[in-house]
Design a protein around this nucleic acid. Structure first.
Lengths: 244, 244
DNA sequence: ACCTGAACACCGTTCAAGT
DNA sequence: ACCTGAACACCGTTCAAGT
């Protein structure tokens, strides 16, 4: 109802109405704002248009279709990520990177999903990728450096993507927790009962959920780092039997 | 155009037209067929309706909204999963489970994503969860058994979900690979160049992609199992110093 | 109880026309 | 070059009316 631009700028021309010119930059900025608030999948082109006091077709003129707007938002988010210093050992470097990645991406729900599906645009991510792979090479991963880099980043993005979606659908989440915790007295299914028991406290105290997500992320990332560290041992044992 | 049910059954009543009665089961079966062919997100209620020679409102009458249809499809898929025997050691048991999980879910694209977001319905998944957690408890994971179970299953579902989506969008995938491999001669970015080189062969030979996906899944799952195995060592070392 | 047929309120996208 | 305003072809969902 209040979404038509003519409601705010009632003259036929933006200029006559004293509205600022629509630019691609302003559109992407507004899209990033909507994304931070609603998530990348939960705003419409019409909403975005009214956010910059314009018609939907104007978005197409300045940026392109929805896909183009979204990938500009993804790039913008990625550029907020800062890199840990390259003097750090690989495990510490990745631990810091992935911890900050979560903080940045969780502020723009849906971006992590896009990253795990299409990867980053290289213009935004090249420095990070380059340094990450070089650090793995330096620390002995050899040919497997690229595999390990992809593994760690993609698992992190996937975990964050799921966290985004779960955070957005509180009702579904609560249903799931309650249904699980209802099994906690089933003596004939002791494994399932243990799982029910372990989520039971979450069902009672919803404030713990944020902390639970964070803990789950850290636990998963640490286990992956453990697995990769173990792999490094194997590579060193089986590779050329120690460098000069 | 050819989607109106009256095209096929031109009488006003299904019975008079000799059409079989619409049942919830037949609807879910058709939905599973469409899902296998197109993926869970890529068919519409109107398509599903015309698949059973009925009007969209009939789906609502027998099953419910789109959400209800989809979760019936998810359940159906899950019941196709068979469990490895409980005599296996934990690592072997999970390796077999997750290998078969991928085979089953890849035949119903989009189901893995739903599982990673909302979890399984317990009626379909209770036996598997129970056995998996009990095996971890038996093999020494103690209190962390439930965490480890969730970790392994959720990472597997996430990997499969991404594979589903990437397989569906071949164009985007090829763009990504080509853009990456264009960096393979950048001497000033040696880490990125290594990554470009490692995907270069994929860009040339698209037949390898299927194998690449499978290998990536196996590599990721093995590294997670490595990490969990390492964790078991830590738990044994720090826990009560060996049982009687 | 089951099905029909139309309607509702959306969506992304396109396009001729204005200035 | 930039914006207007309407239209197009969809979508999930609802509902009164028929049998």
């Amino acid at each position: 109802m209040a979404s038509s631009p003519s409601v705010r700028g009632r003259s036929r021309s933006r200029h006559a109405a004293g509205l600022p010119a629509v630019t691609a930059e302003r559109i992407v900025e507004a899209a990033a704002r909507l994304t931070a608030e609603l998530g990348v999948e939960n705003w419409t082109l019409r909403q975005l248009a009214s956010e910059v006091d314009a018609y939907p077709a104007v978005i197409y003129h300045h940026v392109g279709d929805r896909e183009a707007v979204v990938s500009a938002v993804v790039d913008r988010s990625l550029r907020m990520l800062s890199m840990p210093g390259e003097e750090l050992p690989w495990r510490e470097w990745f631990w810091r990177l992935l911890t900050e990645l979560r903080l940045v991406l969780r502020n723009h729900p849906g971006v992590a999903r896009r990253l795990s599906l299409y990867g980053p645009s290289l213009s935004a991510a090249a420095p990070t990728i380059d340094r990450g792979v070089r650090i793995l090479q330096r620390d002995g991963f050899g040919e497997e450096s690229t595999k390990v880099y992809i593994l760690l980043l993609s698992i992190a993005c996937q975990l964050i993507a799921v966290e985004d979606d779960r955070a957005a659908d509180e009702a579904a989440r609560r249903r799931g927790v309650e249904s699980l915790s209802s099994y906690r007295d089933r003596r004939e299914l002791p494994g399932l009962a243990a799982l029910g028991e372990s989520v039971h406290s979450l069902a009672q105290n919803p404030d713990e959920l944020q902390a639970f997500f964070e803990e789950h992320y850290e636990y998963a990332v640490q286990r992956c780092l453990d697995g990769v560290a173990y792999r490094l041992d194997v590579l060193r044992r089986d590779g050329q039997p120690s460098a000069p």
